[in-house]
């Protein structure tokens, strides 16, 4: 470190305070349809590219490979397999609440039958020795659903 002239007797640090900066994210047609699928049909919807046949979940407007608008909706059901998982053990601040997240927390990628991409969610198992890549999992829906990704409470191994 370089020597600073006229060194202050104390080095101060200021916090940005507690003021929240709230955003209102617009879901658009595709994400809205997906969330309504969770809320009203308790099912997971994907969208198929009519040019290359890839099925995307979460659904989005454009297939990046073909640069074509997608309109063919696919009901993927509620069961898939674990593509990858990780048990998070290092707590960090939850950007939604400002509080530390609860650990251990298991994040998974769910591979639905008939989809080419994967959905992220939680698994209700915190012990990594009891989780297997390729294991079948099933979405557990909440009773009260509000049109968010948390309408699925978590996935559970079947």
């Amino acid at each position: 470190m370089e020597e600073k002239p006229n060194q202050a007797t104390e080095l101060l640090e200021l916090s940005s305070g507690k003021a929240e900066h709230v955003y209102y994210w617009h879901c658009g047609y595709y994400t809205s349809r997906f969330l309504l699928g969770l809320r009203d049909q308790t099912t997971i919807l994907g969208v198929r590219c009519s040019a290359c046949g890839r099925v995307y979940v979460p659904p989005r407007e454009v297939c990046g490979r073909c640069f074509k608008t997608m309109n063919e909706w696919v009901d993927l059901g509620t069961e898939g397999t674990i593509y990858a998982f990780t048990v998070v053990k290092l707590p960090y601040v939850d950007p939604n609440t400002g509080l530390p997240i609860k650990v251990p927390r298991t994040d998974i990628y769910v591979q639905f039958d008939g989809a080419d991409t994967r959905l992220m969610h939680w698994l209700d198992e915190g012990d990594e020795t009891k989780i297997k890549v390729g294991a079948r999992v099933k979405a557990v829906f909440k009773k009260e659903r509000r049109g968010t990704i948390h309408d699925i409470e978590y996935f559970t191994q079947v």
Partner: peptide, 12 residues
């Protein structure tokens, strides 16, 4: 003001 498309859809 307040377009319903998300910004990726606007870019597309």
């Amino acid at each position: 003001k307040g377009k319903t498309k998300n910004y990726a859809e606007l870019v597309y």
